[in-house]
């Protein structure tokens, strides 16, 4: 089972994110680097709060690119995927953004507000730069559309397809509903054996990971739960101590041994 943690870059500062990525790397199949955005409509309260802290503390795309580059130079080899709202890439200049991703070694990008085929030019551009766009499929995506999305994922350098576990926004939930599991089974049936399917939105424990693995998922994405873990150590001065990193590491170890 692939464990893909999501980190909100710059929360509470870039130094902590860099340290956390290093802690997570040995346990992770891939790491999702979230670029904080002022108006994250797909995110629940936890990631909203994290993005706000990051932006207040001066996080920006340039700093995130240089952090990723530095981690690569320091020998961190785990694949990186961006999680960025469309306006972030657009404002940077889409060509430049993709070029820079390639340069610093970020393999793919998840754009939560860019559904499949909404911007074909951007999809082509990414392909040309050798960047994989991770498409999302939701429980209410029709099977016809899901097949189209899965087939597209076959072209070029496909990383995985992101299954949105349930209606709503990101944020840890206690229990996985049976409809989430049957959704994963439905997409696995459509996808056949070869495609990589990872489930996100609400996933927060090793138990969830086992349940989704049973339904046919190859991996899980965990974001809000990680933030819940370290953010309780954030004092008013936004300083983080090593206890936060230790607890993050314990959680990652637990998750990575879940399947």
């Amino acid at each position: 089972m692939m464990f893909i943690p999501y980190v909100c870059c710059g929360d509470p500062d870039m130094k902590f994110t860099r340290a956390m990525v290093k802690k997570l790397a040995p346990y992770s199949s891939m790491i999702e680097l979230g670029i904080p955005f002022s108006d994250p409509i797909a995110d629940g309260k936890t990631i909203q709060a994290a993005a706000n802290r990051a932006l207040r503390n001066g996080a920006n795309v340039d700093k995130i690119f240089s952090m990723a580059g530095r981690l690569r130079r320091e020998g961190i080899r785990v694949p990186f995927v961006f999680m960025a709202y469309y306006n972030t890439a657009y404002a940077y200049g889409r060509e430049n953004f993709l070029k820079k991703m390639k340069e610093v070694g970020i393999q793919g990008i998840i754009v939560p507000d860019l559904p499949f085929n909404e911007d074909i030019r951007f999809e082509r551009m990414a392909r040309r730069h050798g960047i994989s766009i991770v498409n999302l499929i939701a429980p209410n995506t029709s099977s016809k559309r899901a097949v189209k999305i899965l087939n597209d994922s076959n072209k070029g350098n496909h990383l995985f397809t992101y299954l949105v576990s349930a209606a709503g926004t990101t944020g840890a939930v206690k229990r996985i509903s049976s409809s989430s599991l049957s959704f994963v089974r439905r997409i696995r049936n459509l996808a056949g054996k070869d495609r990589t399917l990872c489930v996100g939105f609400g996933v927060s424990s090793a138990e969830h990971a086992r349940q989704f693995a049973g339904a046919g998922a190859d991996g899980i994405i965990v974001g809000s739960k990680l933030i819940d873990i370290y953010s309780k150590y954030i004092g008013s001065g936004l300083r983080v101590d090593h206890r936060a990193l230790d607890e993050v590491e314990r959680f990652a170890a637990d998750m990575s041994s879940s399947g």
């Binding site: 409509i41 559904p115 909404e118 999302l136 939701a138 209410n140 995506t141 559309r145 949105v164 709503g168």
Partner: peptide, 11 residues
């Protein structure tokens, strides 16, 4: 255009 979460595309 429709720059929105996949959940809202069918909706």
């Amino acid at each position: 255009g429709t720059y929105i979460s996949e959940l809202l595309v069918p909706v």
